[in-house]
Design a binder for these strands. Structure first.
Lengths: 330, 330
DNA sequence: GTGAAAGCGCTAACAC
DNA sequence: GTGTTAGCGCTTTCAC
């Protein structure tokens, strides 16, 4: 079923059919009706590929995530998918955590592969080289999430505020020695670690940074014993998975949470309220970030510059994994 | 940069350039070299959209999942994405859990929207009407995952075996009254429920089916109290999230797991080994399912019929949430 | 408001 | 082996 078939059946030219599907108002209601009935008698619907070629844009967006199996990525992806669809765009997704890929910087390769087939690209916290990213930005409109790069529009969840709130929370509970469990060397980790250290200094609490650890449950398991050895009474983990690993390991060792050790996570993924005790954590507006990122990208596509980074506030959610510091730490 | 620019610079025709990028062996190594150097001097790379239109196929695959935020979906998506990429396909993803969508059967709408832009479609456990699915299968090559539909190739994870193993496991531990916590009315739930009931009957243990519950942590929380009221000493949940909800609620009520109640989950998502006690669960080969589904689809695209369903075995993973039945249930 | 014609960038016969 | 010629299905001037 091509546009010509419909044209023939409706007794009009192909151009008119095209108009009906592109700018309906530019056509008499009568011819429009004729075309439309012909179209759905023939079950015709415009061929998106041909349309893309003729128009010079695809109606597609692309998203590359580091690892879809990580809850954080999945939630962002879901939000991006919905928002894209709502605005009439289809979504390409690439997961750059491919073991079969040569190099670690596979995200950029996926991105380039998609570039010609999308109108714009969303990159989730890419660990890629600055220059690679800039080169990519020259080829295709780009928005990055959780990555700060001059001249590339971004949505940031500056978890620094959250880290500050977490430290203040623990300080208020009487904790005087705190540990931060570092994750991978990315934007988020740097922001959190820096805010942690700074706030501890401000409040006069002893601060120790442990790690880096894998940002996973097992990373947290490993970290737990180090924290115990260190003697801190409160710990801020890079993310919820790590925090859950700490909590799990502590349970195995019979160390009560929060009575002996308070644990704070990051992200507020669904996991946080699924473990016992439920995790105090810094909530990141992941879904909102996905939404906003698409919005930013669409602005760029429409020519509205809207450059710069938009920051989405994080929020400390207090649950059951934090409590008063133990009386004495011998 | 079009093919013509390259042709001009290399002093050959457009057709030759096309050949170099499509069937390089059909061209002299000398001209090939000339073309290739011209191409990357011009940073030329074939335009996929134009190529799609001319060839009549897109090099894209599509995947629709019910809810990316569910670990199960994310893991399958990741595997699909990798396998697709490895075989040179890009991947469209749609999440059909869109609240802004009119009807629940939004998966099919997403699917139709993608149909013209992909060579084939993967549907993850769609709850859609049989006829809608068949209609879709007429329009585009289709493979379904966790859905049994005559004439549509499928990959199934027949969790029935897993349910049987779970019941036998609990029976061996001395349990004589078991509950199944039902989930949504889909292929998986039916298979599990039926196997549960049948196996209980065979072994002479009392079986009660509770629910349906939402397939979530809160669903499990709600279920926990019903199980306790029922008096079963072992419970098989629809999935790990539900099982985790049960475990969590039981912890809150001070009911020891597994001493008072043994809990078995389904899927073996990462959550299963992140809660305390670590969950005994039926492992579903989700990643493998994604891989195999792509393989099936590619077979169809290549003309190898390979119809029918492939079944991937489930496996009971015994961890710490199951133990001997309590001595007496008064 | 509608039609004719050119062309988006590439591929696929078919000649040479 | 390589070039020529038609398209793939749609959009978009430019006339009328």
């Amino acid at each position: 079923m091509t546009i010509r078939d419909v044209a023939a059946r409706a007794g009009v030219s192909a151009a008119t059919v095209s108009r009906v599907f592109s700018r309906p108002e530019s056509v008499t209601v009568e011819t429009r009706r004729r075309v439309l009935t012909a179209a759905d008698a023939l079950r015709y619907t415009p061929h998106p590929v041909a349309r893309s070629l003729a128009r010079g844009n695809t109606g597609n967006l692309g998203l590359v995530v580091p690892d879809m199996a990580v809850a954080f990525c999945a939630v962002v992806t879901k939000a991006v998918s919905h928002r894209a669809r709502r605005d009439g765009y289809a979504l390409f997704v690439a997961d750059s955590d491919d073991p079969s890929a040569r190099l670690a910087s596979d995200g950029v390769r996926s991105a380039h592969a998609m570039a010609k087939q999308v109108d714009g690209l969303l990159l989730l916290s890419p660990t890629t080289d600055d220059d690679d990213l800039r080169a990519l930005a020259d080829v295709v409109p780009l928005v990055v999430i959780n990555r700060d790069l001059a001249d590339v529009p971004a949505v940031l969840m500056p978890s620094a505020d959250g880290a500050v709130a977490a430290v203040e929370h623990l300080h208020a509970l009487g904790h005087r020695r705190l540990a931060y469990l570092a994750g991978p060397a990315n934007y988020s980790n740097r922001a959190r670690c820096e805010a942690f250290t700074r706030t501890c200094a401000r409040l006069g609490v002893a601060a120790v940074v442990l790690g880096p650890f894998e940002p996973t449950f097992s990373g947290g398991v490993r970290a737990a014993d180090l924290v115990l050895a260190d003697g801190a009474s409160g710990v801020l983990a890079y993310n919820d998975d790590v925090a859950a690993g700490v909590v799990g390991r502590l349970a195995d060792r019979g160390v009560p949470v929060p009575d002996r050790l308070s644990v704070v996570g990051f992200d507020d993924t669904s996991l946080a309220s699924m473990i016992t005790p439920r995790l105090t954590t810094v909530r990141l507006p992941m879904a909102q970030a996905g939404e906003v990122a698409v919005g930013l990208l669409l602005d760029v596509l429409r020519g509205t510059p809207a450059r710069g980074a938009v920051e989405l506030p994080a929020e400390l959610i207090v649950r059951a994994s934090t409590g008063p510091a133990p009386e004495v730490t011998p």
